[in-house]
């Protein structure tokens, strides 16, 4: 389990809110810090992959935990 600097609970939120909230949270981080996101929207799996690919931030982890989707993103 990777360490993280900030956690965002996007449970219950649907597209595009998890991405928008994550973007806002990442903006407040400094380079190299890690944001952990918990989401329930199944579409968020592909969306966070695409988000990281396009913004250049690194997707450290994408998985499932207790029926929820968990992501770790390292700010570039």
């Amino acid at each position: 389990m990777a360490n993280f600097d900030q956690e965002l609970d996007a449970s219950g939120l649907n597209c595009p809110l998890p991405i928008l909230r994550a973007k806002k949270a990442i903006t407040s981080l400094s380079a190299g810090q890690v944001l952990r996101i918990v989401a329930t929207d199944p579409g968020s799996v592909k969306d966070f992959e695409a988000f990281c690919k396009q913004t250049g931030n690194e997707l450290l982890e994408s998985g499932e935990e207790g029926g929820k989707f968990v992501f770790s993103i390292k700010k570039s």
């Binding site: 597209c15 595009p16 991405i19 928008l20 973007k23 988000f51 396009q54 913004t55």
Partner: peptide
């Protein structure tokens, strides 16, 4: 609004 806000989040 969905596409506009998401595109803005993507830069």
């Amino acid at each position: 609004f969905i596409l506009g806000s998401t595109a803005a989040a993507l830069g």
